[in-house]
């Protein structure tokens, strides 16, 4: 069993009427990269602030590295690095000076701090800009400096709130690779919040889906889609030139195919056929069609990835309960 480093139990927090975090339970183990995925205003940042003891929960407990965050925030903050969304630096100080300030606040000995700052700046590719004022840094450079800033205290866990917000795709990929590499090299636990699915999918070991202050599901992406869409039928769509009743019967007879429906295409040059399967039966469907002598133009099995997860849960974020209900009945 891996050692849990972040344990959240029954955590709740509300601002006035609205519940930002609602009965949250989450455990993150050492060395993993966990993605907290959710639309804006889902309560991700609030959860992170409570992890660091910067915000007080209404109820529930947060333990980071076996330390109670609400009661002993200083101990937690000594061992956890946090990169806020839209991080700011003292703009009339250089990147180097900003890093050294953080190191001093963490009581890193001066000589060691200098070595570390140099190493980290090298690592994030800012060594040439180290003595430029932070105000002149671009957005991507600031995020990379932020990453160095988080790492200079030598943390065991790093928490990154929307680290890729507002960076161009190339910079985003570089940053994500950097995070992944550093985490693997130094055995860091990373908690990353985002509303970009693809980047999360790219580097995270596990993902937690966060909507309206609640964790809907957690796990790696395949198991997540299995969990979320396990009961649903897999639709297989085929385009062919013509379809007769005999072929339909054959298709219906395939074990695992629940129902088959056809629609004429608008230009009446072919037929679109949709078979809903309980398991993946696309190969059997294809061979049945070909054996029946029909011409198969296209065959597609729908695959549930994060996109569908996003569609289902985030697009209708406000009333996803209703949405889910509609889908199950319809």
């Amino acid at each position: 069993m891996k050692e849990p480093v972040i344990e959240i139990q029954n955590l709740s927090k509300s601002y006035g009427e609205s519940r930002a975090v609602n009965q949250l339970n989450l455990t993150i183990t050492r060395g993993e990269i966990f993605g907290l995925l959710g639309p804006n205003g889902a309560g991700k940042s609030t959860t992170i602030l409570m992890l660091l003891g910067l915000s007080e929960p209404d109820s529930g407990t947060v333990k980071v590295l076996d330390i109670h965050s609400t009661r002993q925030p200083i101990q937690v903050k000594r061992r956890v690095g946090y990169l806020p969304d839209d991080v700011g630096f003292y703009e009339d100080r250089t990147g180097w000076e900003n890093l050294m300030l953080t190191a001093r606040l963490n009581r890193v000995p001066e000589r060691e701090a200098k070595i570390r700052a140099e190493q980290l700046l090298q690592e994030v590719g800012l060594i040439d800009a180290a003595h430029k004022k932070a105000g002149a840094y671009s957005r991507g450079m600031r995020q990379r400096l932020g990453l160095a800033d988080v790492l200079i205290k030598g943390p065991e866990i790093i928490i990154l709130d929307e680290p890729t917000l507002g960076i161009d795709p190339k910079g985003m990929n570089e940053l994500l690779e950097l995070i992944q590499r550093l985490s693997r090299e130094q055995g860091l636990t990373v908690l990353l919040s985002s509303h970009h699915l693809h980047q999360v999918q790219q580097i995270c070991d596990r993902v937690g889906l966060f909507v309206n202050g609640r964790l809907l599901a957690e796990g790696d992406v395949p198991s997540l889609s299995h969990k979320l869409f396990g009961d649903d039928l897999i639709p297989v769509t085929a385009e062919l030139d013509a379809c007769n009743a005999e072929l339909l019967e054959q298709l219906r007879a395939i074990d695992g195919v629940a129902q088959v429906a056809t629609t004429m295409q608008e230009d009446s040059q072919g037929v679109t056929l949709q078979a809903d399967c309980t398991e993946d039966r696309s190969a059997a469907i294809a061979s049945a069609i070909v054996h029946a002598g029909a011409q198969l133009f296209r065959l597609e099995r729908k695959q549930y990835g994060l996109d569908e997860i996003y569609q289902r849960y985030f697009a209708g974020g406000e009333d996803h309960g209703q949405l889910q209900y509609a889908e199950h009945t319809g």
Partner: peptide, 12 residues
């Protein structure tokens, strides 16, 4: 400037 949360995230 966004430095408040960064400073507050340090053991201070």
């Amino acid at each position: 400037k966004g430095t408040l949360s960064r400073i507050m995230a340090q053991p201070v």
